[in-house]
């Protein structure tokens, strides 16, 4: 866990010294399970700043929502740092306008798992190195932290910020590629019927609230393809075709742009699994183009670069 006082000091310093206009972080919510993203504009406000394992949002999301000219300080974990880099590559923000306070991350706790274990009346959650202690009217219980983590965090590959201006806390051990790709490989090893059945079952619960889209830092288009009416790319209602179309294209638009932060899945009110889709794309980007999104602020994603080296990657038509 980051030293909260060190975080506050750094946030206050950059505000005081005028390095940034606003610091994006978290503040406590009404319930201990739901800290809220918050914007600190002066030193006094920073007193409210918190950062713990229940801070579930990808803060990079707010970079495209804040006024363009503002200089922004932002608390970044591994995934958030990479999302920031990806936004810089896509010209959504200038690196010079940003100050990244890096936090090595030990994973985000899935609040729904806490509720499953301890009920919904939670008065306090203590987040320690390896254990999470939950205070509920039924009693105080401790759980293994790793088991409570959100799935995408359990298999997270890059836990440390990659290009932070300052790092609060000591770097943690990064995940293994094997673990990170296991899910995709397992899914791929199933037969086609089982894969479709899973996809269908997950997509079917969609209510088209677009929380996944809004929670994703990469989804910053002013007009999404589902909002178009001429042409209407897919059905706009909660019909099988509409729901599947949405999930296919939403995920596909993330090819080479997804940092596996899992914010989409955490935002979903219907507990729809989505990261197995984007993980597949990330896996392909890695295998085919040796590309990992957001590792630096220069490399363009594969779909933005073309090279003749590709020419032999396909079979050639006409029998050649």
């Amino acid at each position: 866990m980051p030293d909260i006082n060190a975080l506050k000091l750094e946030a206050k310093r950059i505000l005081r010294e005028g390095i940034v206009d606003v610091v994006v972080g978290f503040k406590p919510g009404d319930s201990p399970l739901h800290p809220q993203p918050a914007f600190f504009r002066n030193e006094d406000e920073v007193e409210e700043l918190i950062h713990n394992g229940l801070c579930k949002n990808n803060l990079a999301n707010y970079l495209t929502r804040l006024p363009k000219q503002e200089k922004v300080g932002i608390l970044v974990r591994g995934c958030e740092n990479r999302s920031v880099n990806s936004l810089i590559v896509e010209s959504q923000k200038e690196r010079d306008d940003l100050y990244l306070i890096g936090i090595p991350c030990e994973g985000i706790i899935d609040w729904r798992r806490i509720v499953e274990q301890a009920g919904e009346h939670i008065s306090m959650v203590e987040d320690n190195e390896s254990e999470v202690t939950v205070h509920a009217p039924t009693g105080v219980n401790s759980y293994n932290r790793f088991d409570l983590l959100h799935e995408s965090c359990q298999r997270c590959l890059h836990r440390n910020p990659v290009s932070a201006d300052t790092l609060i806390g000591d770097p943690v051990a990064n995940g293994s590629l094997e673990l990170a790709t296991q899910k995709v490989k397992n899914f791929e090893s199933q037969d086609i019927e089982a894969r479709y059945a899973f996809f269908q079952k997950e997509a079917e619960r969609c209510i088209r609230c677009y929380a996944c889209r809004e929670a994703c830092p990469s989804c910053y288009c002013t007009e999404c393809f589902v909002d178009h009416n001429t042409p209407r790319w897919t059905e706009s209602g909660a019909t099988p075709a509409g729901m599947q179309g949405w999930h296919i294209v939403r995920a596909f638009h993330q090819s080479g742009r997804c940092t596996s932060c899992g914010a989409c899945e955490r935002a979903c009110p219907m507990d729809i699994k989505m990261t197995y889709l984007t993980e597949k794309l990330n896996h392909d980007m890695r295998e085919k183009y040796n590309f990992e999104c957001g590792m630096d602020a220069e490399t363009k994603p594969p779909f933005q670069t073309v090279t003749l080296d590709d020419k032999n990657r396909f079979f050639v038509g006409g029998g050649k």
């Binding site: 209510i207 677009y210 009110p269």
Partner: peptide
């Protein structure tokens, strides 16, 4: 509304 994402969760549920 500052941290609101503009999704439809609150209204759909």
């Amino acid at each position: 509304s500052r941290s609101c994402l503009g999704c439809g969760v609150c209204t759909f549920l």
